[in-house]
Lab assay of single mutants.
Amino acid sequence: MSIQHFRVALIPFFAAFCLPVFAHPETLVKVKDAEDQLGARVGYIELDLNSGKILESFRPEERFPMMSTFKVLLCGAVLSRVDAGQEQLGRRIHYSQNDLVEYSPVTEKHLTDGMTVRELCSAAITMSDNTAANLLLTTIGGPKELTAFLHNMGDHVTRLDRWEPELNEAIPNDERDTTMPAAMATTLRKLLTGELLTLASRQQLIDWMEADKVAGPLLRSALPAGWFIADKSGAGERGSRGIIAALGPDGKPSRIVVIYTTGSQATMDERNRQIAEIGASLIKHW
């Protein structure tokens, strides 16, 4: 067993022997301040990774656009098919120029040779490549099948209805392509620590998230040296922004954090800054 596999296998073990965790309302004060600064709703939840206990939450059962955070769930569904012998990570998928959609920095470079399922998941999570996500959605049967996968996990809230990039439209009061912070946090925890996926697939999923290259201005910008984070960000229309993450000190994750916002007129930089400040408060009061 590799060191990384050992780390993920012992996530519940280490967490069980940690000192009790206590909620700190100071972080919620910052979440509410972010709402004021952005002029928009902000949803927040913080779960203990081992027990699933909610440590703090704000608007945990209000719907927010998922945006690209759905790509972690998508690759979880792909990995479940791999575990069941219905898919192979090494299978190569070929596609054409007509398949390319807006923001496809990886797939646009491989029109000639195609990409493997493993490479597509890596591109979808680490670079948020939209064509990679659409190609992977095709392998599982489309958005409705991802929703069905989530329902089978016990998540009857999260739903995907459309493809990239239309799913980022974020129309107010439109339930399409949305989740709730509580539902997303619980589902992410199941994917990373539950028995739904094999140990190898859980490790692969967290490795992809740990290698995320496009979430630097968010929670990662607030992390002290030595902290662990595996995350996936999302951005959408109407001032929408979000991030889902597993993080913790001492090089291992111990909490799940989900943050979503929508309806702001603020710039992307300002949305990023507010999420980073929430992260800084979380870490300060850990």
Rank of each mutant, 00 (worst) to 15 (best):
118 R>G: 13
67 M>E: 07
180 M>A: 01
227 W>Y: 00
263 G>I: 00
62 E>M: 15
104 S>N: 00
150 L>E: 01
260 Y>N: 02
241 R>N: 08
29 V>K: 11
48 D>C: 00
181 P>L: 10
240 S>C: 12
24 H>D: 12
149 F>P: 08
249 P>F: 00
227 W>Q: 02
173 N>I: 13
255 R>E: 00
55 L>H: 14
109 K>L: 14
44 Y>V: 12
219 L>D: 13
26 E>K: 03
61 E>S: 12
78 V>N: 15
142 G>W: 06
107 T>V: 02
88 Q>N: 11
89 L>W: 10
146 L>G: 01
161 D>I: 06
261 T>I: 04
245 A>K: 12
275 I>G: 11
135 L>C: 01
204 Q>D: 05
276 A>H: 14
216 G>A: 04
209 M>Q: 13
27 T>K: 06
145 E>Q: 05
192 L>V: 07
46 E>M: 12
107 T>N: 00
166 E>L: 10
56 E>A: 06
84 A>Y: 09
204 Q>V: 12
130 N>D: 01
112 T>S: 11
196 L>Q: 12
172 P>E: 07
48 D>M: 00
92 R>Y: 13
275 I>S: 13
254 S>H: 00
219 L>I: 15
134 N>L: 09
86 Q>M: 10
235 A>T: 08
126 T>K: 11
78 V>D: 13
162 R>Q: 13
129 D>E: 14
235 A>L: 10
127 M>L: 05
129 D>A: 06
38 L>P: 08
219 L>N: 05
103 Y>H: 06
183 A>Y: 11
237 E>F: 15
31 V>T: 04
115 M>R: 00
123 A>L: 00
120 L>W: 03
216 G>P: 08
265 Q>W: 12
160 L>R: 11
45 I>V: 06
117 V>N: 04
258 V>C: 04
111 L>V: 04
245 A>I: 11
125 I>Q: 10
119 E>A: 14
96 S>W: 08
273 R>P: 06
142 G>C: 05
206 I>P: 11
82 V>R: 10
138 T>V: 06
35 E>L: 01
88 Q>K: 14
274 Q>H: 03
111 L>Y: 02
222 A>K: 15
197 L>S: 07
87 E>F: 13
209 M>T: 08
223 L>Q: 14
199 L>N: 09
222 A>H: 15
229 I>S: 02
46 E>S: 06
152 N>C: 11
34 A>Y: 05
189 R>C: 15
25 P>Q: 15
274 Q>L: 02
91 R>C: 09
278 I>M: 15
32 K>I: 01
109 K>Y: 13
29 V>L: 09
39 G>Y: 14
244 I>N: 11
54 I>M: 06
85 G>Y: 01
246 A>D: 09
95 Y>I: 00
165 P>R: 04
247 L>H: 01
259 I>V: 10
70 F>R: 04
54 I>Y: 08
